[in-house]
Design a protein around this nucleic acid. Structure first.
Lengths: 332, 332
DNA sequence: GTAAAATATTTGTCATAGACAAAAACTTCG
DNA sequence: CGAAGTTTTTGTCTATGACAAATATTTTAC
C-alpha cells in the first residue's frame, strides 16, 4: 500500500507540462480485448469464452493474432447481463435476448417496491439532485435529512433505499456510473462526518467491521457502523477487503466479541457463503460473526454459527439479543 | 452498487441467532485453490500455471479431481514475490529464492531512503502506535500533527512517508495486513475530517479526482485532494475506480479543467501507462490530465498530453504553472 | 394437492499445452 | 559512451475437454 514516494522528478518544467502534442485519434471504433472486458464486466475470461462456445454470445471479432476483440455494444450487453444475474437471473435465459428485452426484465424485480404505497420514496427527492450535478446541494440536502431524522433513521429510511434506487436507476440507464460514484462519495462524506461527531460510548459488544476480499463497497460498511454506533456498540473498522487470515488475527489481537462483515449484492451469493463458512472455520468459536447485506435475504439455509442480518433494521434487535445472551452467560 | 434491501427476513429469532452448533475443524492444514490464490496474491491463474510449468514454483499439491491446491507457505511466498515485483524486480530471479533470501532483497530498495539523513522519520514515531493497536491514540497523534504542521506539510511530511514506511514494514513482516488496514482507516478519517472543515474556495482550476479501475487505494487520492484544496483548487472526487468512459463523461458534464488520477505502486507501470494513454485518447483535448503517484518516478518517457506528478511536493508548482498558462491564454 | 426424493440441466471453473508479442536485458557497433 | 540490433524473459491468449455444484424439473409418496 505504499503510495507515494518523496522523490521529485518534476524539476524540469519542460517535462512537467507536456500538454502540447496531443495525440490524434486513429480509429473511431473502440474494440476491447478479453482481459479488459473481464475487468469492465466482472465476468471471468473463462466464462466469456465458454458462453461464446455454448450460447453463441458474445461473438467477438478477431484481431490479426486471432485474439478476441469485443465491440462496445457487446460489452454493454454483457454489463447489463451481469447486472441482471446479480439479481438472481440465469445467463442461459439472458444471452440471446436483445438489449431492449433485457431492459424490460428489470421492471419485474422492482414492481413490488415502487408500487407498494403512495408515500414518497427518497428517490423522487434525491434523483433530481444527483442528476443536477450539484455536489454541494446534494450534500447539504443529505446533511439536512440527517439532522431532521437522526443517524439511525437517516441511514435506514434514506440512505439504504437511495442506494437501491440509485443502483436501479443506473441499471435502467437513467444514471451514469460517474453519477453513482459522485453520489456514493457524498453519502460517505456525510456518514463519516456523522460518525466522527458521534460520542464514543464504550459499551459491549466490541465489533470488528470489514468486508472480505472482492467486496469493495464501503457504503454498506459505513451504514452498519452508523447503526451500531447509535446503539452504543464499540466499532473498529478495517475498511474494505481484509483477507480472512487477517480478520482472524485482528479479531484476536483486538479482543473483539463479534466480527461484522458487509456484503453488497454485487457479489455472488454462493461465493459469499463459501467465504463466510471458511471464516467461521478459522475464527475462534467464542467470537461471533455477523454477516450483513440484502444479499442474504435470498438465502435458503443459514450458515451454522453465523448471524445473517438482511436489513439494517434488524441491527438493534440483534444487538440487544447479543447483550441479553451475554449478560445471562455472566450470571450463569 | 445497490447494497441493502429493506426486507426484513430476520423476524424469526431462531434464524437470527444461529450461533449454536459451531462447526468443528476438520483439518488443521489450510489448502488454497487456484482461484483464491489469484484473489489473495493478485497473480492471474494463467500466470500461476505458467510459472509452475517454467520455473517449477509454485508446486501445488493436487486434490481428488487433479486440481491444484496450494499450501500456505507457497501462498505466502507468492505474496512476497508479488510485492517485490511491484518494486520492479523480475519473477525469474525471485521464484527460486527462499523466503529468507527474498526478505534480504527488500533492503536494497530502501537503503537510500533510511540512511539518507539523521533526522527522525515519522515511522519511528508512529510504528509503535500502530503496533500498540490503540486506534484512538493513533488518531489523536495524527490529528495533533495535523494541527501542528498544517494540512499541506502534514500530508507531505507525515502521511506520505508513513504510507511508504508502513508498506515496507508489512513487507518485512513487521506489520500484519490488518494493522495496515487499521492505519489506513485512521489516516483516511483524519484527512477527511480536515478536508471537510477546510473552507471551500472556488478558484481555478476545477479538478475531477478519481482512480482508474483496478486501483483501489483511496489514500493517494485523499492526499492529493488535501494538497489541492490547500492551494485553493476546486476538487470533485468520484472515489476510486471510475471506468475511462465515465471519466470522460463526468469531465464533460462537470466542465472540469483537469482530470486528476492517483496511482499507487501496487499497480504495474505498463498497465497504468497504457490506461492513461487510452484515457488521453478519448478525453477532450482541452481538458488536462494529471497523473500522480510515486509510480511515475520510475518511468522513462512521459506520455504526450499528460502531466506526471511523481510527488505531492510538486503539486503547488504544477498548479501555479497551470494558472500561469491559463491566465496567459485569457489575455492572448 | 403438497412435500420430498430422484433425475436432468445449467453453469462456472479448472486442466493441458502451444503460441506469440511486448518489455527488458544483453551485445555489438560506431 | 550511446545507439542499434539481438536474445531472453514474461504475461496473456488460444482451444477443447472435463467435472462438480447449483438450479430446475420430474417422479414418487403421503
Amino acid at each position: 500500500m505504499s503510495i507515494m514516494t518523496v522523490s521529485f522528478i518534476c524539476s524540469e518544467r519542460s517535462q512537467l507540462s507536456k500538454t502540447i502534442p496531443a495525440p490524434k485519434r486513429t480509429k473511431p471504433v473502440l474494440l476491447t480485448a478479453i482481459g479488459r472486458v473481464e475487468r469492465e464486466t466482472g465476468l471471468a475470461k473463462d466464462t466469456l469464452r465458454v458462453w461464446e462456445r455454448r450460447y453463441g454470445f458474445p461473438k467477438p471479432l478477431r484481431d490479426g493474432n486471432g485474439e478476441r476483440v469485443y465491440p462496445p455494444e457487446q460489452v454493454e450487453k454483457l454489463r447489463v447481463i451481469r447486472r441482471l444475474m446479480d439479481g438472481g437471473m440465469r445467463p442461459g435465459k439472458l444471452v440471446n435476448a436483445t438489449l431492449a428485452q433485457l431492459s424490460e426484465r428489470f421492471g419485474a424485480s422492482r414492481v413490488e417496491d415502487s408500487s407498494r404505497s403512495g408515500e414518497p420514496s427518497p428517490m423522487t427527492e434525491y434523483l433530481p439532485l444527483i442528476k443536477a450535478r450539484e455536489a454541494g446541494v446534494l450534500q447539504r440536502q443529505l446533511a439536512h435529512d440527517l439532522m431532521r431524522l437522526g443517524l439511525q433513521r437517516f441511514v435506514v429510511d434514506v440512505v439504504a433505499p437511495l442506494n437501491v434506487g440509485v443502483g436501479e436507476a443506473w441499471t435502467r440507464g437513467e444514471l451514469e456510473i460517474y453519477e453513482e460514484h459522485l453520489y456514493s462519495e457524498q453519502v460517505q462524506h456525510v456518514l463519516r462526518q456523522a460518525l466522527a461527531s458521534a460520542p464514543r460510548m464504550t459499551r459491549d459488544p466490541r465489533l470488528l467491521l470489514t468486508t472480505l476480499p472482492g467486496e469493495q463497497h464501503q457504503i454498506g460498511l459505513l451504514m452498519a457502523q452508523a447503526c451500531l454506533a447509535v446503539e452504543g456498540a464499540e466499532c473498529l473498522s478495517l475498511g474494505p477487503q481484509t483477507p480472512a487470515r487477517d480478520i482472524v488475527l485482528a479479531a484476536r489481537a483486538h479482543r473483539v466479541d463479534v466480527v461484522g462483515l458487509s456484503f453488497s449484492s454485487a457479489i455472488r451469493l454462493r461465493e459469499a457463503r463459501a467465504a463466510v463458512v471458511d471464516l467461521r472455520k478459522h475464527l475462534d468459536r467464542s467470537i461471533g460473526i455477523w454477516a450483513g447485506g440484502g444479499l442474504w435475504a435470498g438465502m435458503k439455509e443459514p450458515v451454522a454459527g453465523v448471524t445473517m442480518i438482511a436489513s439494517l433494521d434488524a441491527i438493534p434487535a440483534v444487538l440487544s439479543q447479543w447483550r441479553e445472551q451475554h449478560s445471562k452467560a455472566v450470571y450463569a
